[in-house]
């Protein structure tokens, strides 16, 4: 199962919420112990500590709840990897999946390099990066093309 991811603001809020909660527990403990054993310092009123602790505790709860709204739900793009049908060209490019497409479907789209037809070599999903959507998408495509070029199976020897 994919791990829960938070936005930066949510992460800060979460840490702040936990710090406040820990401080509140500490103050409440000092306050309560003051009632049993007397105040640790004459200037520190246990009742005051107790109420400060309770107030901090109540403040930490909405902060922690707010941090939960910053959970990033992963979004995915389905990519169709297009490959030139000319075995010597091997030009590939990625683009968003379109309805009724399937792997090994011959397309009417022409290769920019050799003008042969494209076919779909693979369909897969990639996680969409939350920020700089446009740039990232282009980067994803480039990455896909780069990967497919690097890891292409060696072409079978054509008998002469």
């Amino acid at each position: 199962m994919s791990e829960v991811k938070y936005t930066t603001a949510a992460k800060i809020l979460k840490v702040l919420g936990y710090i406040l909660m820990m401080a509140s527990v500490f103050l409440i403990m000092i306050g309560i112990s003051g009632f049993f054993m007397g105040p640790i310092h004459p200037a520190i009123d246990p009742l005051y500590m107790l109420f400060s602790g309770l107030l901090l505790f109540m403040a930490s709860l909405p902060i922690l709840m707010m941090s939960q709204t910053g959970i990033v739900k992963p979004e995915f793009d389905v990519i169709s990897l297009l490959r030139c049908s000319n075995a010597d060209c091997k030009f590939t490019k990625g683009r968003k999946f379109e309805k009724d497409e399937y792997v090994f479907k011959e397309l009417d789209e022409k290769c920019e390099k050799c003008n042969s037809n494209f076919y779909i070599a693979a369909i897969f999903e990639v996680e969409r990066k939350p920020s700089k959507k446009k740039e990232e998408k282009t980067m994803n495509m480039k990455e896909v093309e780069k990967d497919s070029k690097q890891e292409e199976s060696p072409a079978p020897k054509t008998p002469s």
């Binding site: 897969f124 999903e125 199976s153």
Partner: peptide, 21 residues
């Protein structure tokens, strides 16, 4: 299990040439 049921991921596509080899 999630990958097996879910949409094909890039890592699986990258494994195709290795399997063919």
């Amino acid at each position: 299990q999630e990958d097996a049921y879910g949409t094909m991921v890039k890592d699986l596509v990258k494994s195709v040439p290795k399997a063919i080899e």
